[in-house]
Design a protein around this nucleic acid. Sequence first.
RNA 1: GCCGAAGUGGCGGAACAGGCAGACGCGCACGACUCAAAAUCGUGUUCCCUCCGGGAAUGUGGGUUCGAUUCCCACCUUCGGCACCA
Length: 866
Amino acid sequence: MPVEKKETAIQPVAEARPAKKETKRDNAFNPREMEPKWQAKWEADKLYRSVIDESKPKHYALTMLPYPSGDLHIGHWYAMTPSDARARYMRMKGYNVLFPMGFDAFGLPAENAAIKDGVHPMKRTAQNVERMRKQLRSMGAMFDWEREAVSSDPEYYKWTEWFFIQLFKMGLAYRKMSAVDWCPNCNTTLAREQVWGDDRHCERCGTPVIKKDLDQWFFKTTKYADELLNFDGIDWPQTVKTLQTNWIDRSEGASVIFHTAPPSPPAPLPQGEGRHPIEIFTTRPDTLWGATFMVFSPEHPLVDEITTPENKAAVEEYKAQAARQSDIQRGAVDKEKTGVFTGGYAINPVNQARIPIWIADYVLMTYGTGAIMAVPAHDERDFAFARKYDLPIVPVIKPEVQSEADEGEIEAAYIGDGVMINSGPFNGTKVNTEKGRKNPGISKVIDWLEKEGIGKESVNYRYRDWLISRQRYWGAPIPMIHCNAHGWNPVPEDQLPVMLPEDVEWKPTGESPLKLHPTWKNAPCPVCGEPATRETDTMDTFMCSSWYHLRYLSPHYDKGPFDEAEYNYWMPVDTYTGGIEHATMHLLYTRFFHKALRDAGITEGNEPMLQLRNQGMVLGEDNEKMSKSRGNVIAPDVLVDKYGADTVRAYIMFFARWEMGAPWDSQGIEGSARWVRRVWTLFTDPSTTLRSAQGGPIVASDEVKKNLRRKVHQTLRKVTRNFEQFEFNTIVSSLMELMNEMYKAREAGAVGSGEWKEAQEIYLKMMAPVTPHIAEELWTNYLHKPYSIHQQQWPQVDEAAAKEDVIELPVQINGKVRDRINVPAEATEEEVRAAVLASAVVQKYLEGREPRKVIVAKGKLVSLVV
RNA sequence: GCCGAAGUGGCGGAACAGGCAGACGCGCACGACUCAAAAUCGUGUUCCCUCCGGGAAUGUGGGUUCGAUUCCCACCUUCGGCACCA
């Protein structure tokens, strides 16, 4: 039952109390003074310094580290302050919490700026880091700054280089010549993950990429493809798991070896001679008998070999055109299929059929083997191609229930289930729509292929190895040396780090300054000591961020990438928070990295981050993505200056569902500012504006006090659950609600009672993770409790106090709420039923009849069917 | 085309596990205070009607149920990812 509105009978005191103005000034809420004061004290007292403590359970809370652009964005606040609030909550719950911060400091913007204005990236980065540290401190977060790591510091990138060498030694880093994605604006190659969208643009700058044939360093991420598809034991959002699964895109099937056939049918060549094996991958080995032609990618190495003289010109022309097109966009949507006949033939190994070999750009060199068997009867693409070029179509799967009385023209490729036909020994075998071994037809054919030695079960992935070479200066050098006699060898580990030279020139040529440096690249071969050349490319910065969570453990440790004692205590990361845009980039790279290090014996366990939560995005007030060009950017510094950090933190947590994000609302923040100020007033001004009818102070009734206590514990229960579940918006709204109740209780004279004091204490403790400064100020200076509130235990819910004794039950009659009755919370079903039937409203609807059905949902409602 | 997420007042959003739809806040309206405004405080605020009462409503249409924002089926819209992947 809600608090009785006794105060309605009492007139507000019109005249302000004489001392009020003075008091107000003394107690003025001034975050601009108060917040820096506490920030300085917390830091001086090392309040947030996290040290190993075996007596407590540990909690490693991590939020994605920022790039030091030089200005903290509202998006950083949105990502970090709720993470901070939760880390603080975990700390109050009794965990020894590590919540570190650092900078992902290598990267292109600093280098591009250097080309423009000549300021060295090292200098600019240092300045930006300094500025962002200050801005980050203004959040009042519990970062342990003694663990700060900056990826562009030599003491950091020494180990980034060291990791490269470990991967190289394991055979996981290798060099390969291939057609790679090149961003003409960033002047560097990119990994596949870093090329986005329909127009295949650079993830960083938005410029469409082009293809270039280059010799580059790769990490063998594909070796871990299967393991990366396994998310056992980690609590990650389904969305991220799905994105990663789709990105890796495993498909099961078979690899089958075809052979080239002699040019003209009657001339049988001796076994083996002049016959090239052609390996293909197929997910449908059950349709092998329907393969009526083959298609090679124009880049396939066998194309020149098999092309007959009379087709040479056309093939060359097509290849040239395809090469040109790949620079623009070969994979345009719904493009009509094109191709040319090579003049060459292959033998289908299952039925010895002699089938023509075509080239077409719908077959990609980068997937499978770059060659396919074409089964036009059961593949839409092959069907379209066969139709266009009038190639034979042989059905090998017959639908079990054939509605058409046809045998006439086939109108489309048949993809469904059925029975194999025209397939030699397999005629009559059932085929369904399952993939891989789950499909009986596929499974039987694979067994047979293996027995016959024609092919074998095989798995293919869309996933590629990670291209990590970047033709840029501002990154960790790839610690490799090339010698004409001994090839590529790692820099000896005792010579790490390979330092970036500082004396470089910035030229807008698109060439890395490292390459243009007169002497830097000269180094003795680690094997023979003769003059050799350093690799002048640097590493993808995602390499730096793949292990930063390890460097935080001991950022200045020099005997290894991290101190093992710290590792053993803190790892793995318990809660990781950040944007979902990294789903197939950082979040995939770091999992790969951890697994590779595990296999090197450096890390333990299968996963680096146990729990992941993604925040959404803050949009501009115009509901568009924030950008300088749109002029809709919200600057947190300005807001902190105007409202104080606590208000900004509170609003950030309040205004949207964290995982969804929402547009910013400059008026909306006033509500949070009002809340913070009203809490301030509630704690600093205990007087009520009301007097009892007799003119004396009001003394709260037992009922008022009991109701207050109930509300406090109900709120505590809810806020606790919300913290556990990352529901930050309802934490703040529950606190607002409780504050409103406390104002009412104050008016009803509850101030000074034990219940009031308990309410105040619990209120500030619940508030502390959200608004750490005001909570500390009120706790120490107004409640005079021992400093610091951030070292207090999270309060316990008193379930007995939280319980309602009388509840109001809505009464539904035929699904509509017609009445409400008050019953004791403990009332039995019979008692509730009796109370409902006694209601005049219910009687009216019953019109003297018995209800057909009475459903009592205990504590919730009563539903009658009449 | 495939995969995923989401559609609730003027707005952001709430509703623990099928049980009172719209908590909390913004905005708006009215009132108090003020010479006035701002701030502050109070009251109200889903829509509609023949307004003591009643009806409709959580993207649309069905279904299950005493009861559906919640579960099931189909569809629409928006956003994100993938896209000739053999």
